[in-house]
Amino acid sequence: MDFLRPATLAEALALKAERPGAVPIAGGTDVMVELNFDHRRPDALLDLTGIAELRDWSAVPGAVRLGAGVPYRRVIDELGGRLPALATASRSVGSPQIRNRGTVGGNLGAASPAGDAHPVLLATGAVVEAVSTRGTRMIPATDFYLGVKRNALAPDELIAAVHVPETGAPQQFAKVGTRNAMVIAVCSFAIALHPATGRVGAALGSAAPTPRRATAAEDFLADELGAGDQWESPTPLPDSTRRRFGELVAAAASPVDDVRGTAAYRRHALSVLARRTLDWAWQGYTGRGRPCA
């Protein structure tokens, strides 16, 4: 095994082009577990922590460009106002030690269906900035997750950043775990209202082979809100709308029975999370509720 320590992104891309089997490592929260338990023995590790370009976030028009190496801790501390749902999701990640080190970029690279950031990235319409010596590709989160722990990156590509829309509108994240801290999602859900376009983003995690959008639920809710002129003059949502939204989110899942929960429970819990987060988001939109936690 080789340990590659590029100092710049350009150097990292050259190494990745030359050795596409090299496994990128940043916070180590996935890769090191695989190494410690002999689940993976790559030819090389490509350490990204020495690359200054990956370490920061910046405001770009309509979005935050979040460097792949920014740890969850900084998302919580610095981006709670701009990206409230991502900050909520980040606060639910692992432990303080994990949040100090783990990154949204790493979450994307691992592409685990249980990754906490994914539903937010899908619901908000984030775009992954993938780079290689061949150039830059902007991959919408919707197209990024291909299968269990498989993503759309080419073997020579690295994640430079993820562009997360700064919507200024209510958004929520919620995650069910069987412990009150430091727990992997049994299922998770994010909702983002997009009043400017009259759309709704809704996405689920840990209840299908990949994180995925609940498009039927998104369309249903967008239609309901559009039809009643709710964006302009919001009123409390009827129970039938809230319930139907929950059902459609649950229907979007393809969960399995596993040691963390049953498929039936995951569907049920998703419907509850969808209904509750919709309530909170809608209360936020109508100005009556509390902002995202």
Partner: peptide, 11 residues
Amino acid sequence: PVCACLVAAGQ
């Protein structure tokens, strides 16, 4: 503060 078990020695 980090978990030393998740830091590769080279990092």
